[in-house]
Write a protein that binds this DNA or RNA. Structure first.
Lengths: 200, 200
DNA sequence: ACGGAGCGAGAACGCTCGTTCTCACTCGGC
DNA sequence: GCCGAGTGAGAACGAGCGTTCTCGCTCCGT
């Protein structure tokens, strides 16, 4: 049992690096096979089709990504009011990773969202989970819940822009904008912020 | 001369609808051919390769998109201080178009950015042009130039989020956040905003 | 009237992809 | 010791891709 689990991980490791780094359609099953050092038959034994492998790739990446973010925020000793900003610091760190290439889900959606509903659904779920996590932090900070969506938009924009420009600076700009929004919301409390739009 | 120009446009019309709607790799040259009603030989006469067609598609879309935005802002009778916000109204309108599927350049980048440098370059140029346009509006509004980048991030995040969720609401949330940022920047003027990050 | 350049329609080519099959071999239970 | 189930390595298959070629035909200058 742990044997097939190990090969499963090896396959997913290889698939993640290839799919994320080069795009899903660009990478053939044979590339996954040779990168994972597994035989083609075993590959199809564990994942009965490329679609299944793609789904597993996205699922695992979603969990990894969110766990990494959460544990970073948890480890930080920032007061609750500033924990939201730690998210943007974490983004900056992510952006500076050498193989950063934007959001795997946005990329997958652009590539396959129109033809593969499961991919579109996985992307939606990922973004929705992130937004909810952000909403929790906003709530802990005592800020109005309506802030979660604009903060998510800033993060989203930063991810895409960092990918396109190859620079981590968008994380900084997004962080400062987030700080301003939080400050404005807490200062004037419920007033200006009640107009900041419905939860979504 | 105008004859080949007309077929060129017909090809590009078909290519744009297909590439944007389904993704670039998904759409074969044969699909472009039959959608444009042009013979395969003519297609390759006008665009010597699929890569050339993709480049032309992105170039024309960039021009169209920016021209549409600019003419919308120009036509609006909003005072300079609020013209920036018109951008987000225009985004909302775009998001509600029935075949809206996010930013063509972000999608193309996710699909081909890692393997096709021209695509990556086109996406970069498109985003940079948008950011510069926004910077012009920010300047006209008398707001500090450092605002252009966070506003661009909001717009970018709204585009992606609207595509994923299929809802135009992110445009509204981004607009309100932009309004708050502008108000905060103009109120406190150069103070809080000088920290809003370098131009990029 | 005629020769040839250009055209439309689609077959053809070479390649790659996702997936399956072959086949020699290994190895654990009777 | 042996049989059969399962393995590894890779060939094979059918489909689809981007691109080019073939082949009648048309149409224009002389």
């Amino acid at each position: 049992m742990t044997e097939t689990e190990a090969t499963r991980e090896r396959i997913l490791d290889a698939a993640e690096e290839l799919f994320y780094g080069q795009g899903i359609q660009t990478v053939g099953m044979d590339a996954v096979r040779s990168a994972s050092g597994v035989t083609l038959r075993r590959l199809y034994q564990v994942f009965p089709s490329k679609g299944a492998l793609v789904e597993a790739y996205l699922l695992r990446r979603d969990e990894r990504w969110r766990k990494s973010l959460a544990s970073c925020v948890e480890k930080s000793d920032a007061p609750p009011a500033e924990r939201v900003l730690v998210v943007f610091d974490w983004l900056r760190d992510w952006f500076t990773e050498p193989d950063f290439r934007g959001c795997a889900f946005v990329n997958a959606f652009g590539e396959l969202g129109a033809t593969a509903p499961e991919v579109a659904e996985a992307a939606r779920r990922h973004k929705e989970a992130f937004r909810r996590y952000l909403a929790g932090l906003v709530d802990d900070a005592g800020a109005p819940g309506g802030l979660a969506t604009p903060l998510a938009l800033l993060a989203e924009g930063a991810i895409t822009t960092a990918a396109l420009t190859g620079s981590p600076l968008p994380a900084h700009a997004a962080r400062e904008a987030a700080r301003l929004l939080l400050a404005a919301a807490i200062d004037e409390d419920g007033r200006a912020v009640a107009q900041a739009g419905p939860p979504r």
